[in-house]
Design a protein around this nucleic acid. Sequence first.
DNA 1: AACTATACCTGCAAGC
DNA 2: TGCTTGCAGGTATAGT
Length: 273
Amino acid sequence: MPELPEVEVIRRGLVPHLTGRTVLNMAISSQKLRRPLPAGRLREWVVGARIAAIERRAKYLLFRMDNGALLVFHLGMTGKLTLVQSGGPSRKHDHFSLLLAGDRELRFNDTRRFGFIEIYSPDELHQDPFANLGPEPLQEEFSASYLFHRARKRKQPVKCFLMDNRIVVGIGNIYASEILFAAGIKPTTQSGELDGSQWQRIVIAGRAVLEKAIACGGTTIADFVNESGHGGNFQNHLQVYGRAGRPCFVCQTPVSRIVLAGRATYFCPRCQK
DNA sequence: AACTATACCTGCAAGC
DNA sequence: TGCTTGCAGGTATAGT
C-alpha cells in the first residue's frame, strides 16, 4: 500500500496531534505481524514516555521518544495508522494501539500483516538501524551522478533498480511506473545503459511525481487512508499505473502492461524510449 | 555478484 | 450461488 508519499502524508497528519503527547498505555494483539510484536520492550520504552518528534526514513515512520528510544512503524501493504477518540470500537485487524493523554488513541490496523513495529533503546541507536538504506529521493544525495555510478554495468531493468531500497528508498510499484513515464524512459531499459541526461530526467521526474503525490494526499487504490481515515486523490493523476489498454494521455497509444520481477509494470510504448 | 522467484497474509473480483 | 484462480501498494530470503 503505502510508498513514500503515503507515509509522509500520515507523518504530516500525525505531527500536530502527537508531538509532545505522553503515552499512557498500549494494547497489543496476540497475532504476529511480519515479525512478532516486541511487547515487553515496547511497554518498557514507550508507556510513560512522551513523543518528542515524528520523522520518516524511507517508508518507515519514526517516533522519537523523550527517553531516547525510537518507535518504528512499517505499514507493509495494508497497514493503517489512524487517530481516533479513545475507547472507540475496535475493528477487525487492529493489532496495536497507543492510548494517549487527551483522550486520543493511535491505532495500527493491518489486514495482510506485512507491516511491523519495532522499538530501539537509546543504546541500540549508537548503530544506525537504517544503515543499509540508500538516500532519500527528495534530498540532494539522490542525483544523476549518484545513480549513474551505482548503475554502472548493471543489466537490471531500471524500474527494478529504482525499487531497490539500497539504491534509493521510498519508490514502490506505483511510483516507479509513474516516474519512468514522466521521465520518458522505458522500464525495461538496462540500468547500466542510461546516460547522465537520462538519469537527470529520472531525478527531476522522481522529485516532481513524489512531491505532487504528497500534495495530493497520497494515492488510494483500494485502502490507503491518512491518520484521519481519509483517502488521497493522486489516483486521479496517475498517467500509466493500472491503465493497461487505455489510451496514453499524451499520444493516445494504448498503455502496455508487463511483469518485471513479478510486479505489474505499466508504460506507454510510444512516449517511453 | 547480480538478478529473479518465492514466501509471508487476507480480501476481492472475475471466470466458470 | 459457490467454487477456484489470480491479483494487490512491501521486502527479506532462498535459489539460479
